[in-house]
Design a protein around this nucleic acid. Structure first.
Lengths: 199, 199, 199, 199
DNA sequence: AATGAATGAGAATTCATTCAT
DNA sequence: AATGAATGAATTCTCATTCAT
């Protein structure tokens, strides 16, 4: 059985799916191996440990968000509205997709509790998420408001994502994203920034 | 070790602390027993299994929130503003308290992934949380808006609570609570419900 | 199956036998458990790890030698000759006994290579061994000669013990012990310490 | 890494170094391969198994001692004293050399415990060692005394070699070798063989 | 010759749970 | 009520070995 059965990327993808569905600690290396059509020992060819595998998974998700989601925030060829819309459309698709799904919100936090190295990576992800959203808001709002709005948007999204999982109902996340988008659009019309300030 | 007499309640409290700090799956029955000054076998005199213990812990937290937090929402002797303020003050204190802390947001979700019975209990909790907040908003808003505002507030709070844990910084949750409270107060002044509608 | 099947001492004895026969690294916890009539998980009731078990085994052997072998060196009621003779008789019996046998010479050194904590314990043992022999020689020789004779005797004994194992022939050790004893006795007769000096 | 071309000899040398430093069982085929700049699969082009490799290592060391150490014992152009001195000088250099060092004393015994074929090879080595030393003593002593002196010298050397490793102090071996050499020299002067007899 | 993917057996260790005392 | 010995299944990880390329 020498023929290459898998590659690193496949293992990462399969791990991601399992971690999302079952949580990090309920996914054994044997589960992952089985999902890849391997014996458990074979995983250690690709990753020196389960922790190391998880770190690569987190980093992969992070990179994926950077290029497929956060990137829209920095695309100056788009209007701020379009940037936010495209960003959230992309995020929604990933979050609600069985395959890719949200790792950071649930599994990330769960495991970050116990493994400081995971926590660090999860923090990086959220910091980048904040930054992307804030960059869009900065087109219309001063620094402090952009900051607050970004923090708030990301918090709302992560909270509603959790509800979508717990209640097994996508509409929590979908409604939240709609709401956040409206918030930006409306500000175009009213021009009444002050009113928005603390809202 | 102050010789506290062991009873079901003590075990539940100690379990809660440990589950919060270490997550459900990283807390062994031996850990819990040690925290209670018992040997692990003795726990089985009080609870038939770890899952059963966890269920009792979740229910206890739920009951606690009902009587100490959600109750304010139904106290007609208070103004809506006061109701929300007292409710969130109480929630904040619990959430940011090392001892009691947030169980549902992290541990609940982690374990709910694998144990359907846990998920059911966590859903009950959030349903009650929603309901309490919505009840307050109903004093000022029509059904659909109250509903949305409640959903949004709880999502924001849970999201920011997650950030507070991941970044180890209480200010995420504190700021969010301040913001949610302001939102209600401001609506008193402006009376411009429409503006708030989708915001 | 609640009844006590074993105790710490039994596990230590069985481990010692197996370590001696198979070496530390070829003796699995499952082997030890089986020798004790236990499941392997049960060993962890008594010892937190295999390394810890090994340390207790080394210490037990050391204590045993202290009380059953080295003690003769300090028994002032005996003549030096008798002290050495009784000491070596006791040592020989232990070394050549299947059950107790020599741990330090072979297993100790093997494992000491990899585990510094084992090396430390093995050094303590040999230091005590030296000291006991030297104490006897001090009755007849000045410090420096006693020192050298002790070092040499212990080295000779350990070396011949290795041969006895490798060649599966007790006579190597037995002859060495006889020779070392003769050395002391002869010195009684000749009184020619100088001659012995470098011999 | 200086691109040394890999051949059987290189693998044997690198294995020897690792077996000495880490013991046979703590040296993996991957370790050896890495030391040779190979992948572990490649080792199997040179040696059918790890055991087979070890056997070749033991034989190589044995051959090396035969030609570089034991050979002096049979060099009739030298005086007995010179023969012994040169022999021990060569042995000391090898024993205390990080690269080559003692294999038989520790690793040999460790593995001989489990693999009878190793034990056989180690016995051959020691038999040759005995024989070389005895041959020198035969120049001055009758058969029985030469035999005993040889056995004793080798035992002393192996024992002190063990101490040198355990205590990480070369002087144990060095002093022993000095002592053994003195023993022969002195006998030249005194001519009092009887005195030496049992000493 | 060399690779490196894959295997499969086995290692140490953890842990919820049971139960005789 | 409490203990603590015992279990047995599961988990992560190691490693000598094989073999198609």
């Amino acid at each position: 059985m020498p023929k290459q059965k898998v590659d690193e990327q496949l293992i990462i993808i399969e791990s991601l799916k399992l971690f999302r569905k079952q949580s990090y600690y309920h996914t054994s290396m044997a589960d992952i191996a089985a999902a890849c059509g391997l014996q458990k020992g074979s995983l250690y060819h690709y990753f020196p440990s389960k922790e190391d595998l998880m770190k690569k998974v987190i980093r992969t998700v992070h990179e994926y968000f950077k290029s497929k989601v956060f990137a829209f925030a920095y695309d100056k060829s788009l209007t701020p509205n379009d940037r936010l819309e495209k960003l959230f459309d992309a995020a929604e698709e990933i979050f609600l997709n069985e395959e890719t799904g949200s790792l950071m919100g649930n599994v990330g936090v769960e495991s970050a509790l116990m493994v400081p190295e995971f926590a660090e990576l999860v923090r990086h992800f959220f910091t980048d998420f904040f930054h992307a959203i804030k960059t869009i808001y900065l087109d219309k709002y001063p620094e402090d408001i952009a900051d607050e709005l970004a923090e708030r948007s990301v918090a709302e999204i992560e909270g509603s994502l959790m509800f979508s999982r717990v209640f097994n109902d996508h509409s929590y996340l979908k409604n939240t994203i709609k709401r956040v988008l409206n918030r930006l659009e409306k500000s175009n019309v009213t021009k009444r920034v002050e009113m928005e300030k603390i809202n």
